[in-house]
Amino acid sequence: MDNKSDWSKTIEELEGIEWPDPPPGGTGLVKAVHNLRKRPINLLTAWEMSRLIGQDVGIPWLLPVALEHLRETATDQSLGAFHDDDLLTAALTRRSLVWQSNPQWAADLKEIISLLEDISPSIREDVRRFFLRADTGATN
C-alpha cells in the first residue's frame, strides 16, 4: 500500500468484498479474522495484523504496513525494546508466490532481518525457510 491515507480504510473497503458473518460455531480465530477485516488498517495492532497475515487475509495491504512496523521495531531492538515475533513469523511464513510477486517486499524483509541483533531460536528455522523461498522460489 503506497498511500498511507489508505491505511484509514478497512480490508473490506480496499478489497471491495464484504464477507458474511462468521459461521455459527466458528472458532475464535475465524470470528476474529471476520471482525478484523472491518477495522481500519491504521487501528490494527501488530498482533491483529499477524493474525490476518497468518491467515493470508489482506496481504496486499497489510504486508507493507507490517514490514514498516517490523523495520521500526527492529531499529528499536538494540535499545531493549520489544520486537514482535508473532508479526515477524507471520511475514516470514508467507508462500513463495508472495515474495516472487513482490521482490521489493522480500528485499525489505531481508533488510529487516539483517537489522535484528537477536532472533529468537524458535524463529530461526522460519528465517532460513524464508531465505530459501525468497531466493530460489522453493515452496517450503
Rank of each mutant, 00 (worst) to 15 (best):
A32I: 04
A32Y: 08
V33K: 07
V33L: 15
V33Y: 09
V33G: 06
V33C: 14
H34T: 13
H34K: 13
N35H: 12
N35K: 14
L36Y: 12
L36V: 04
L36Q: 04
R37L: 10
R37N: 07
R37M: 10
K38C: 14
K38S: 13
K38H: 13
R39F: 14
R39K: 15
R39Q: 14
R39Y: 08
I41V: 11
I41D: 03
I41A: 04
I41F: 06
I41P: 01
N42C: 08
N42L: 07
N42D: 11
L44M: 11
T45I: 06
A46N: 10
A46G: 11
A46C: 10
A46I: 00
W47C: 06
W47V: 08
E48W: 04
M49E: 11
S50V: 06
R51H: 08
L52Y: 06
I53Q: 00
G54K: 05
G54N: 06
G54L: 05
Q55D: 05
Q55P: 01
D56Y: 14
D56M: 13
D56F: 15
V57Q: 05
V57H: 04
G58E: 02
I59C: 06
I59V: 15
P60I: 04
W61V: 03
W61N: 07
L62C: 06
L62R: 03
L63T: 03
L63F: 02
L63N: 01
L63E: 01
L63Q: 05
L63D: 00
P64F: 01
V65D: 00
A66P: 02
A66K: 02
A66E: 04
A66T: 10
L67R: 04
L67I: 09
L67E: 07
E68L: 05
E68G: 05
H69W: 03
H69K: 11
L70C: 09
L70W: 04
R71W: 12
R71H: 11
E72D: 11
E72V: 13
E72G: 09
E72M: 09
E72R: 07
E72Q: 09
T75L: 03
D76C: 07
S78W: 04
G80H: 09
G80K: 07
G80W: 07
A81F: 08
A81Y: 09
A81T: 09
A81L: 13
A81C: 08
